[in-house]
């Protein structure tokens, strides 16, 4: 009987994930309503619950895919994977306004460059403070502070040690998770309530998953604007971190 149940679940992975996520969201809205009196948005609670489930999954399986590593929940991997995520992000653009995008073009581009460079510099300074002095390690950790994709791409390109690459991924993951959780709480203090600031936000934070999750929990109408710039961030990071930024780092700290 139990085996039949588990087979049914594994054979219908994606469907299971729809049910699991639906129930998670339902519970999150109840928690939001009853425990926080609606002060903390249901989506924000659902994302936190999702991360907790990912932690439980990771602890139990030792895998890298959170809950999706547990046999009966593999569908979560498909539902939350790159393909459907990108598809749904593009779909949110259906609600975006062309005029707003045009108006925020310049601040959007400036924020992209500012975002990559600021994060990189902070990563380098912290790595230096922790005793790393070689340009390759500093650059890799700096790149990891932009996103968890730029870190390993840069580290691999420069030939960094696997320990440093792992650190760079961890830094990027922390950034992404904190952005997901923190955005709805910080939004009103930084004026994150209009398309223009959402475009700037996407460019500054850069982590597509973090920005997308954070904005969804703040105000779903802002998602397309933030996501649009955020998707360019990783590309820009992969472009300038192992090249220009590495050369500057080497010039400052020596090889």
């Amino acid at each position: 009987m139990l085996e039949m149940l588990s087979n049914t679940f594994t054979e219908n992975g994606l469907i299971v994930s729809f049910a699991v996520i639906g129930i998670t969201i339902y519970l999150s809205y109840i928690i939001s309503d009853k425990l926080t009196k609606g002060k903390i948005h249901g989506s924000a609670i659902a994302i936190i619950l999702g991360l907790v489930l990912a932690y439980i999954g990771g602890i139990n399986t030792g895998g890298e895919q959170g809950l999706a590593d547990i046999g009966i929940f593999t569908g979560i991997g498909l539902m939350g994977g790159g393909m459907l995520r990108d598809f749904a992000i593009v779909a949110t653009a259906f609600g975006a306004s062309l005029d707003e995008i045009k108006k925020a073009g310049l601040p959007g581009i400036i924020s992209l460059f500012a975002g990559v460079i600021i994060s990189f510099v902070i990563g380098v300074i912290i790595a230096f403070a922790f005793g790393y002095t070689d340009a390759v390690s500093l650059t890799t950790i700096g790149a990891g502070a932009t996103t968890y994709i730029v870190g390993p791409v840069t580290g691999t390109a420069l030939g960094a040690s696997s320990e440093v690459i792992a650190l760079s991924i961890a830094a990027g993951l922390i950034k992404s998770i904190l952005t997901m959780i923190g955005t709805p709480f910080i939004a009103k203090y930084i004026g994150l309530d209009n398309p223009r600031s959402a475009i700037v936000y996407g460019g500054l934070m850069g982590t597509t998953s973090g920005v997308a999750g954070g904005l969804a929990a703040t105000d779903p109408k802002l998602v397309p604007y933030g996501a649009m710039t955020a998707t360019f961030y990783t590309g820009l990071g992969c472009l300038i971190a192992p090249s220009v930024l590495f050369l500057v780092t080497r010039a400052v700290f020596g090889s």
Partner: peptide, 14 residues
């Protein structure tokens, strides 16, 4: 989109 983002959160390497 939001449900997909939550699924994405559940598959992060926390």
């Amino acid at each position: 989109y939001i449900p997909i983002v939550i699924a994405m959160a559940a598959k992060q390497n926390v």
